[in-house]
Amino acid sequence: MVDQSAVGRAFTPVTARVEPGRLRFLLDTLGERNPLYRDEAAARAAGYAASPVPPTYLFCLEMMDASEPFELLTALGIDLARVLHGEQRFDYHASVVVGDILTFRPRVTRVTEKKGGAMTLVVVETEVTNQSGIHVADTSRTIVVRNPGSS
């Protein structure tokens, strides 16, 4: 079971490039047709340096480009079969656009037991910077762990 000793634990930074082909694949999969994400001229007309990414794309990039996508679960002894997705949050401080090279730095910021210990909520916050060292976003995700003995 994850306990308070996990708070503050940092994990391997992930570097990912915002590639137009992978972004287009996601947009096609979602059925997203907004020209802002697909047409560089429309993006530039809206004030972007290139086509921006949709708000939740950062989570995809971090998972896809991690050399060990489940490093956190392994390091904390969490069985993937007991994991549920709790919530996600994205706070943008600057635009993220096609061509950016991003660095993700995840760390555990909170561990909370719920339902008399039947589950543990693990909050992972990630600082995201671009190739220029600009802090472009913070993401937060809550992992719900069903503890052994709970149904």
Rank of each mutant, 00 (worst) to 15 (best):
E113H: 09
Y92H: 15
L36C: 10
D39V: 04
P13L: 09
P54M: 03
I78V: 06
T15P: 00
L121S: 00
D138Q: 11
E62Y: 05
K114G: 10
A46C: 09
H135I: 15
G116W: 07
R110G: 12
Q131N: 08
L23D: 07
R146W: 01
F59R: 02
T112M: 13
N147P: 08
L80H: 01
L84F: 15
V14L: 12
E87H: 13
M64N: 11
S51D: 07
D39P: 03
E125D: 14
R110F: 04
P20R: 12
P55K: 09
G116H: 06
A43I: 02
L30C: 03
V108R: 05
D28A: 02
K115P: 04
G149E: 07
V98C: 00
M63W: 13
E32M: 03
M63L: 13
D91C: 05
Y57N: 05
L30G: 05
F11N: 07
F59Y: 02
G149V: 01
T12D: 15
L73K: 06
D65K: 12
L36F: 11
E40S: 09
I134N: 11
T112L: 15
S95C: 00
A43F: 12
T129N: 01
H135T: 15
K114D: 13
T103Y: 08
R9P: 03
E40V: 10
T12C: 07
V53I: 15
V108G: 04
L61G: 01
V97I: 12
N147Y: 04
I101H: 02
T12H: 13
F11G: 07
V123P: 03
D3K: 03
S5P: 00
S95E: 10
P106N: 08
P52I: 02
D3F: 06
R17T: 14
